[in-house]
Design a protein around this nucleic acid. Structure first.
Length: 267
DNA sequence: ATGGCGCCGTTTCGGCGA
């Protein structure tokens, strides 16, 4: 089966693609990934900045809406077999543009922007749970259908104590770290066989992908790790490294998330 | 317990995110 000699995929919640476009173009030029998957593009498809990306040599599949959500997959060659939403449960995201899949260089990429949940007694928390149930079914199906699967994006759940900057007992009271949510994240991996790529190669605590704007300037190291690359069994031995590009936080008008880069190679 | 910041839009403040 086809497998490129190397594969570099990045995930980045940009919190408005139009506002962050210069940063995205600069980052692409500097890092030359095989693919970059974006969340919170916050732009409807008619206004997607396709021309500027094309001029810089990048093709795109995108699924957006006005103001909120929005996901896109960028690559040098046009992503193929593009799927909007979960193929196994299209209504699970309730019309919100949060899920996009496409094939790049023989790898099936699933780009995810899962709900944050707001509070455990909020309807948004129940929505988050339904999205995780649909995600689990989707990953089980994808793992059976495609030889190489990477499910990347903003999962809005920190996996364990290493991924939060405060004691776990205190974090457990907060959405994105409740034991219930951690169970959803663990169950998704157990059922599908996909694994958090970072933890295959790095057990360090204090590696973060999201930084609360409200803490910015006061406590810039006060982040959480809520963005992941989940890789299917065939790719797990090929994970070389996962890096978090926190330097973008020093740019003017940064996103609250940083690019997370997964590099694979043949063993 | 609260709020802090940043983005969006039939925009100049309220809704939403995390």
């Amino acid at each position: 089966m086809f497998m490129p000699a190397s594969f570099k995929v990045a995930t980045w919640n940009v919190n408005s693609l139009r506002l962050r476009l210069p940063q995205v173009l600069a980052w692409l030029n500097e890092n030359q990934p095989t693919a970059l998957v974006l969340q919170e593009t916050k732009v409807e498809d008619a206004l997607f900045p396709l021309a500027a990306l094309n001029e810089a040599g990048w093709q795109a599949a995108y699924h957006g809406q006005k103001s909120y959500n929005g996901v896109a997959i960028l690559a040098r060659e046009a992503p193929t077999n593009v799927q909007l939403g979960f193929s196994t449960n299209p209504s699970a995201t309730e019309g919100q543009a949060r899920v996009l899949a496409a094939t790049v260089q023989g790898v099936r990429l699933l780009n995810l922007y899962l709900p944050q949940g707001e509070a455990t007694d909020s309807p948004k928390f129940a929505f988050k749970q339904r999205c995780y149930a649909a995600l689990q079914a989707e990953l089980v199906a994808l793992a059976a259908q495609y030889p190489h699967v990477i499910a990347s994006g903003d999962y809005n759940i920190a996996a364990d104590a290493r991924d939060v900057p405060i004691p776990a007992k205190r974090a457990e009271k907060q959405v994105m770290f409740t034991p219930e949510e951690q169970q959803w994240l663990a169950q998704v991996q157990a059922a599908s066989g996909l694994r958090d790529a970072l933890r295959l190669v790095n057990q360090d605590a204090g590696i973060y992908s999201w930084f609360d704007y409200r803490m910015y300037g006061r406590s810039p190291t006060h982040g959480w790790r809520i963005d992941y690359h989940m890789v299917s069994p065939t790719l797990q031995p090929r994970v070389r490294r996962v890096t978090h590009h926190t330097a973008v936080r020093a740019l003017p008008q940064p996103s609250d998330h940083v690019p997370v880069v997964l590099e694979l190679e043949l063993v």
